[in-house]
């Protein structure tokens, strides 16, 4: 008999005490065999204790806030060291839908891809499509990354992603910090991992607020564009 593959959900969360229990519950409901790792990125509210009280997730309480990149990377380290075959990122703010997990994991489990990215734009889905300005920014990443890795990725900022073992080990050492998503696409593409987009629906966050607003959006674009362009200058890692 083939040993069932072990799957880990990495749930980065920062001040998500209102949505975290629901997020954990919805993942467990969709597939009880999935292990959940909540990475509490130095929250100042009760995210850690609320998550712990569900009794259904491992909780990593980072002693300080290091940003989403570092938090997710802590998840990759855990997944890599504990022999998980598949890991996927599922945000703690309720934006990602547990009903889409199956679709996200399918190409990975069939060995059609090393990394899958849940995209809001591949097919026009009914759910959350973000604001016009943000979609413009996302379009720039699409064009840039398409040029650099010669593959069209429509939703470079999506954090709803799944990874095979090799990609987990790679990212445990090389995941970008700060605003990691578009840069990670480039990094993975250039290092020979097979990327595949899966059309998914997303939801507008229920509680809390986006970490990228106002002035930060400008900084975000500049930082990420710089990171993407500079990593295009780097030779392959590993």
């Amino acid at each position: 008999m083939v040993k069932p593959r072990r799957i880990l959900a990495i749930v980065p969360s920062y001040n998500e005490e209102k949505s975290i229990a629901h997020v954990i519950g919805s993942i467990k409901n969709s597939d009880p065999s999935i292990d959940i790792l909540v990475v509490n990125d130095g929250s100042t509210d009760n995210t850690g204790s609320v998550a712990k009280s569900t009794g259904e997730a491992f909780i990593v309480n980072l002693p300080c806030n290091i940003g989403i990149g570092g938090a997710v990377q802590a998840g990759f380290k855990y997944a890599g060291r504990n022999g998980y075959d598949v890991a996927f990122q599922f945000d703690g703010d309720g934006q990602h839908l547990a009903s889409e997990i199956k679709a996200l994991l399918e190409p990975i489990l069939k060995n059609d891809a090393d990394v899958t990215i849940g995209s809001r734009f591949r097919a026009k889905t009914a759910g959350f499509q973000s604001t016009l300005l943000r979609r413009g920014g996302i379009k720039i990443f699409e064009i840039l990354n398409s040029l650099l890795i010669k593959q069209k990725i429509t939703d470079n900022t999506s954090g709803f992603r799944a990874y095979r073992r090799e990609a987990i080990h790679f990212l445990a050492d090389h995941y970008p910090s700060d605003y990691p998503e578009p840069e990670a696409v480039l990094l993975l593409g250039r290092n020979g991992f097979r990327l595949k987009e899966v059309s998914v629906c997303m939801q507008q966050r229920k509680e809390g607020k986006s970490s990228i607003t106002g002035m930060k959006s400008g900084y975000y674009m500049i930082k990420v564009l710089l990171a993407v362009l500079v990593s295009a200058l780097r030779t392959r890692i590993g």
């Binding site: 909780i59 990593v60 309480n61 980072l62 002693p63 570092g70 802590a74 910090s177």
Partner: peptide, 14 residues
């Protein structure tokens, strides 16, 4: 280095 330390401390505590 600080980021790596924070990650390791979190994982070890767990």
């Amino acid at each position: 280095q600080n980021k790596i330390l924070i990650q390791e401390v979190g994982l070890l505590k767990m």
